[in-house]
Amino acid sequence: MTPDMRPSIALVVVIAVLVTVGVYLVLERSLSRVLIGLILTGNGVNLLFLVAGGAAGGPPIVGTTPIGRMSDPLPQAMVLTAIVITLGLTAFLLAMAYRSWQLNEHDEVQDDLEDRRVARRAAADQPSFTDADTEDADATLDDEAAAVHDETAEGRTGEVPR
């Protein structure tokens, strides 16, 4: 092991900033901001691996660097794997945000209808078991989906792209 295991303060600060900004963005409701937040947090964590590998040294190739001065190659291999995985999943999330925009004209995370239905029934203090004569017995989830929550809809017009 290299004698110098002290992490670089610059890396630690960068990690802190990346993760802070990332967490803030993940708490947003828009999927594309969540996506950017996840990318930033992911990058922060990738840097954490570099810190975990100890101080930087020479290339870890036997014959070019004395063994005592080599960088630890293992965390770098792990970071590479993590980067590739994050890339793939980010692409998927991006595609999903786009699909959400196609369908709803926005990419906000929507409420769960059934949750709201259970909550509404509880608020009205109705029995949780309902019979055929309950009010919305003929409204399907799809019917309600048309009227689903949409914070951004006000003041936005235009055709929904198909």
Binding site: V26, V45, N46, F49, A52, V109
Partner: peptide, 26 residues
């Protein structure tokens, strides 16, 4: 897509936590 959004974001967050744990373990 609505259901998937929640699932994917939560799953990615847990993966980030796992990665943090891995880095600290190493």
């Amino acid at each position: 897509i609505r259901a998937g959004t929640i699932y994917v974001v939560v799953a990615l967050l847990s993966s980030v936590l796992f990665l943090v744990a891995l880095a600290l373990t190493y």
